[in-house]
Simulated assay, not measured.
Amino acid sequence: MRLISGSAGGIPLDVPKNVTRPTQDRVKQAIFNMLGELVDGARVLDVFAGSGALGLECLSRGAASALLIEQDRAACEVIRKNITKTRLEGASVRQGDVFKILPQMAGTTTFDLVFADPPYANKPGEEDLSLKLALLPELQALMAPGGSLILECRVTKAAPIEWGPWEMVRDREYGSTRILWLRKR
């Protein structure tokens, strides 16, 4: 895994062992091709950050700042190493449960872009964290007007989901990965 483009393009990133499902380079490239100029100068939030690849890719492409939230302590250490390795400024890491941290942050700042790659529901009965996150009122409160949520989830044959307060901009599938671009109404 590496950063694809920008000031730190080509720099390889470390990946935490056993706790993440890194976004494939081709999927990352597709995401950033979709977003185009929206990244430049953006305030970015990367939740379920894993290696920090999406937030760091934004900084490499000119984002103003990136807050990376990850629950796993070892993954946070890997993110910090990746920040040091890439020498990108404007990155900060917060360790903890996304569903506890976001309510604590509500009303303190806003973000233009939010990237989320939560753990997939792999078995019947497991909670869909993608939908739970998208419907979280505190996430809406943290979004700048017209802000975008880029949500990575599993491709399913289930009935279409109503994404509540979000306008669907794009819905793309890359193998078993589904990328949703949702914009705050």
Rank of each mutant, 00 (worst) to 15 (best):
residue 120 Y to G: 08
residue 128 D to C: 09
residue 148 S to M: 10
residue 120 Y to R: 13
residue 167 E to K: 13
residue 160 P to M: 14
residue 117 D to E: 14
residue 108 T to C: 14
residue 125 G to H: 07
residue 95 Q to K: 00
residue 142 L to N: 02
residue 96 G to S: 13
residue 96 G to F: 06
residue 165 P to A: 15
residue 105 M to P: 05
residue 112 D to I: 09
residue 144 A to D: 02
residue 99 F to C: 12
residue 122 N to D: 06
residue 110 T to C: 10
residue 119 P to D: 08
residue 165 P to C: 05
residue 88 L to E: 03
residue 168 M to L: 15
residue 99 F to G: 06
residue 146 G to N: 11
residue 94 R to L: 03
residue 141 A to C: 07
residue 127 E to V: 15
residue 147 G to T: 04
residue 121 A to R: 08
residue 130 S to D: 02
residue 100 K to Y: 11
residue 117 D to N: 14
residue 142 L to A: 00
residue 136 L to F: 10
residue 132 K to G: 10
residue 145 P to A: 13
residue 145 P to M: 11
residue 121 A to T: 00
residue 98 V to P: 00
residue 109 T to G: 05
residue 88 L to I: 06
residue 140 Q to N: 11
residue 132 K to W: 12
residue 162 E to K: 02
residue 115 F to D: 00
residue 105 M to C: 10
residue 116 A to R: 01
residue 121 A to Q: 07
residue 109 T to K: 09
residue 110 T to W: 08
residue 106 A to T: 06
residue 156 T to D: 07
residue 137 P to H: 13
residue 159 A to C: 03
residue 123 K to F: 08
residue 153 C to S: 13
residue 158 A to R: 14
residue 164 G to C: 11
residue 92 S to F: 01
residue 146 G to M: 11
residue 135 L to G: 09
residue 95 Q to N: 01
residue 90 G to M: 05
residue 163 W to G: 02
residue 143 M to V: 11
residue 162 E to P: 05
residue 151 L to E: 09
residue 125 G to F: 14
residue 129 L to I: 05
residue 165 P to W: 12
residue 160 P to I: 14
residue 132 K to I: 10
residue 94 R to P: 00
residue 168 M to P: 12
residue 163 W to Q: 09
residue 152 E to C: 14
residue 120 Y to A: 05
